[in-house]
Amino acid sequence: MRVGCPKEIKNHEYRVGLTPGAAREYVAHGHEVLVETGAGAGIGADDNAYRAAGAAIAATAEEVFAKSDMIVKVKEPQPGEWTQLRDGQILYTYLHLAPDPEQTKGLLASGVTAIAYETVTDERGGLPLLAPMSEVAGRLAIQAGATALQKANGGRGVLLGGVPGVLPGKVVVIGGGVVGLNAAKMAIGLGADVTILDRSIPRLRQLDDIFNGRVHTRYSTVEALDEECFSSDVIVGAVLIPGAAAPKLVTREMLSGMRQGAVLVDVAIDQGGCFETSRATTHADPTYEVDGIIHYCVANMPGAVPITSAQALNNATLHYGLQLADKGLKALADDPHLRNGLNVHRGRITNQAVAESLGYELTEPAAVLKAA
């Protein structure tokens, strides 16, 4: 199979779908790899590094899309990219379709088979291809929140760690999953006062054990959200429903009760955001203000640290990518966890959460694979 890797074109996206090391693995499996020139520049990998790994270099993205059987990316295809996809081609990348009807229409029209990193599962029910970027985003959320909290950036002017004789800043993390866990680790490291809200009592018990009393855990109710948000300096939205749009847990009405200059960091923005007033921003212009509250809603947070995040992402995606290259669609039939990543196949929606979110009829993955 010929595996193609175009350069990412989303605003300030420096990651790459295939590192030179990953490209070498595909070549070792007997596949051809075609990489767009400059694709690895953001991680310090030049074209010669890919040539040394056995890949060929394409002069343009158009050449990569036209000549490849499978496209490996990081972020969802942009309008100029989804028009280059075609029937019979495999797309392997993050998609986040639930809040993106236009991309969904483009993928359906192309006839492509699209596998979303964020809905591939493992035997424990986890999301192994989303987890590494959730770890990065959770840790970055505290860095971003601390920076936005500075007075010169529009924030309250609070140092999260405080100093002797002055109370630390308060951080509330909504959601105790991978993002929430990593955000809490970073916030504790800075010396902040941290509370995690979640609706899973077993998960709250785990978090209590992990942090050994260094964080407060609280069952998430409307009342608890009000009380915690109204007394916080930084609020991290870390709620995920796999494949579906994120629930709006913090309403605009709630902003009036918050401290002026408090910061909302919406890590769920890829899935539409978990704050009612969230809208996607970029690294070039990451924050905006609503009713005196600073919002940080960058949709590709890990792109800010591409060397770390590209390596972590490739470590996670390589195993399944090689299955797809080795077996084609048979890999989806053979592996139920990889099959859960199938979101679109030849003009049909094959993921239940996406179908429900966007109002499409669901076609069961097993049915389309049997037909194929």
Rank of each mutant, 00 (worst) to 15 (best):
Gly155Ala: 02
Gly155Pro: 03
Arg156Asp: 08
Gly157Leu: 12
Leu159Ile: 13
Leu160Lys: 02
Leu160Glu: 09
Gly161Gln: 09
Gly161Ala: 06
Gly161Ile: 01
Gly162Phe: 11
Gly162His: 04
Gly162Asp: 09
Pro164Cys: 15
Pro164Asn: 08
Pro164Phe: 13
Gly165Phe: 08
Val166Arg: 01
Val166Met: 14
Val166Ala: 15
Leu167Trp: 07
Leu167Glu: 11
Pro168His: 03
Val172Gln: 15
Val173Pro: 07
Val173Asp: 10
Ile174Val: 15
Ile174His: 10
Gly175Lys: 05
Gly176Cys: 00
Gly177Ala: 04
Val178Phe: 09
Val178Tyr: 13
Val179Phe: 10
Val179Asn: 15
Gly180Cys: 08
Asn182Ser: 08
Asn182His: 10
Ala183Met: 03
Ala183Thr: 04
Ala184Asn: 06
Ala187Gln: 09
Ala187Met: 14
Ile188Asn: 05
Ile188Met: 12
Leu190Asp: 03
Leu190Ile: 07
Gly191Arg: 00
Gly191His: 03
Val194Pro: 10
Val194Gly: 12
Thr195Gln: 04
Ile196Met: 13
Leu197Cys: 04
Asp198Asn: 11
Arg199Trp: 01
Arg199Lys: 13
Arg199Gln: 13
Ser200Ala: 03
Pro202Met: 05
Leu204Thr: 05
Arg205Gln: 10
Gln206His: 12
Gln206Ala: 06
Leu207Tyr: 00
Asp208Trp: 00
Asp208Val: 00
Asp209Arg: 06
Ile210Glu: 15
Asn212Ile: 01
Asn212Phe: 00
Asn212Lys: 05
Asn212Asp: 12
Arg214Cys: 00
Val215Gln: 04
Thr217Glu: 04
Thr217Gln: 06
Thr217Tyr: 02
Tyr219Asp: 14
Thr221Arg: 12
Thr221Lys: 07
Val222Thr: 14
Val222Pro: 01
Glu223Arg: 11
Glu227Lys: 07
Glu228Lys: 05
Glu228Arg: 03
Glu228Cys: 06
Glu228Val: 00
Ser231Asn: 08
Ser232Arg: 08
Val236Phe: 14
Gly237Ser: 13
Ala238Leu: 07
Val239Glu: 05
Leu240Thr: 02
Leu240Arg: 10
Leu240Glu: 15
Leu240Cys: 07
Ala245Trp: 01
Ala245Leu: 03
Pro247Gln: 08
Lys248Arg: 05
Lys248Met: 02
Leu249Asn: 07
Val250Tyr: 10
Thr251Phe: 06
Thr251Pro: 11
Thr251Arg: 10
Arg252Lys: 11
Met254Arg: 12
Met254Gln: 14
Met254Phe: 07
Leu255Pro: 14
Ser256Ile: 10
Ser256Gly: 12
Met258Ile: 07
Met258Arg: 10
Arg259Glu: 15
Gly261Glu: 14
Ala262Glu: 11
Ala262Thr: 07
Val263Phe: 09
Leu264Trp: 14
